[in-house]
Amino acid sequence: MLERFIAITADFSIIIPFIYLLFKGKIPLTISDKLIYVYIVLTLIRNIASFVTMMLGVYNIYLYNWYNLLSFGIIAALYFQILNNLYFKMLVIAALILLIAIAFIDYRTLLNVRTTEFNRFSFNASGCFTILFILFFLYELIRKLQVKKLTEYPLFWFSSGALLYYSGTIFPYIFIQYTFNNLANRDLYWIIDAVLSIVLSVFLCFSIRHMKHQKTV
């Protein structure tokens, strides 16, 4: 019962940052703010779609598989435009291409809408690449010292939340065959993802709270 409550809370927790952003009214958003906004909207769409399909008893795993690819695209674009290091930009492009290639190794999970399995490789790869981008971004933050107050920097909150989420979920995803692709174990590990999704939503709220014109790193 508790597991189900947490799972539903996690699904709808993304509504809070979404509504918060709507309540903020017209603020001059930077490109990174807009990308965070798109990330929130995409996650909200996924959660609503998965909830509705679950209620209707329709297969929805392929939604998660596609969401993983699209959300990584947004995260890659976010760090690509915020960091000015040429090697890093090349790494981001290479990671994106590699992830698409890796995801299509398990192409049935993307093309078959009735799939019951999570994509075996793309979850691991996207998690690893995202953690790498975030670590590089945090390193640049403390190296360049262009942001005077980190706690008032939206991207710092987003990065912290994403780091916690992807670090926490990467381990279950490494053993995806045993955890999420195994129906008997799925609920046990799903709760980790749900709790971390709530944490990410809280961090996204802090990120939106400090959205205004900011300098890039």
Binding site: L135, L138, L141, I142, L150, T151, S160, L163, L164, S167, G168, T169, I170, F171, P172, F175, Y178, T179, Y189, I192
Partner: peptide
Amino acid sequence: VIIIGTGIMLIMAMFIVLFVM
């Protein structure tokens, strides 16, 4: 094993964020 691994990863992530701040 997975739960402990996840816990360690989370602690590391939190440590990194706090250290950066």
